[in-house]
């Protein structure tokens, strides 16, 4: 089984030199720690920064310089600032090469729900609806089951939808999942996890050959 860093490391294999990447809050943020040495990737923060750097050293925090999670951050050589319309302009016009975000539910047709639990949590969608409506390459990083033990990979989303048929890949602690006509397809297994176990935890339709390789990082 993968831990959070394992999920992030698995997703980092999607990165390519020259990519512009938007990382959501939570596990997606950790992907930044696994950008291979020598690869140039610019991180987009939708509050208005391209070329996001690491957290600042203590004492050099700048309240005017934060990321989309409202955390203090830094810039890097080659960074740029812009307003929120331009930020979503680059997202809508498909300039961002890879978007990684969390989800509460993903459906077998690629629908995603991650912004609202009726009657319980109403925090809002932030930039998630814009991202999932426009980005070409959306990877979801999430836990496979929720706190109640219910699968988050479902035939259909039960929570209010964030975007339709937009997710291209899902990475959980159990494996890597793609999409085909009938539903989810198991691409790789997490180390030490059986296909039967994954099938049991996946309530949406799952195709697998039963011989999927374990996730390799190199």
């Amino acid at each position: 089984m993968l831990d959070k860093n394992g999920i992030a490391r698995t997703i980092a294999r999607e990165l390519k030199d020259g990519y512009y990447v938007n990382l959501g809050i939570g596990i997606p943020t950790l992907v930044a720690n696994f950008i291979p040495e020598g690869m140039e990737v610019q991180l987009q923060s939708e509050n208005g920064l391209l070329g996001m750097g690491p957290f600042p050293w203590e004492g050099s925090e700048d309240p005017d310089l934060i990321n989309a999670g409202k955390q203090t951050i830094t810039t890097l050589p080659g960074s740029s600032f812009f307003d929120s319309a331009m930020s979503f302009g680059m997202i809508r016009s498909g300039k961002v090469d890879l978007t990684v975000l969390g989800a509460m539910e993903v459906a077998q047709n690629g629908d995603i729900a991650n912004w609202k639990i009726p009657g319980k949590m109403v925090k809002g969608m932030g930039g998630a609806m814009d991202l999932v409506a426009s980005a070409r390459n959306i990877v979801v990083a999430m836990q496979h089951v929720n706190k109640a033990g219910e699968s988050k990979l479902l035939p259909r989303c039960t929570l209010p939808i964030t975007g339709l048929a937009c997710v291209r890949k899902v990475v959980t602690e159990l494996g890597v999942f793609g999409f085909e006509q009938e539903g989810f397809v198991l691409l790789e297994r997490a180390p030490g996890v059986s296909c039967d176990y994954i099938r049991d935890k996946t309530w949406g339709h799952l195709s697998s050959t039963g011989y999927e390789l374990e996730i390799q990082w190199i």
Binding site: A85, M125, G126, D130, P160
Partner: peptide, 27 residues
């Protein structure tokens, strides 16, 4: 959606009555 919020401000500032956006379709 955040991009819709930004674009609705932008439209006002540019003297346009409305914009079309894909954000929120089907929701």
């Amino acid at each position: 959606p955040q991009g819709t919020l930004a674009s609705r401000c932008m439209a006002a500032g540019y003297g346009m009555p409305a914009i079309y956006t894909p954000a929120g379709v089907g929701t």
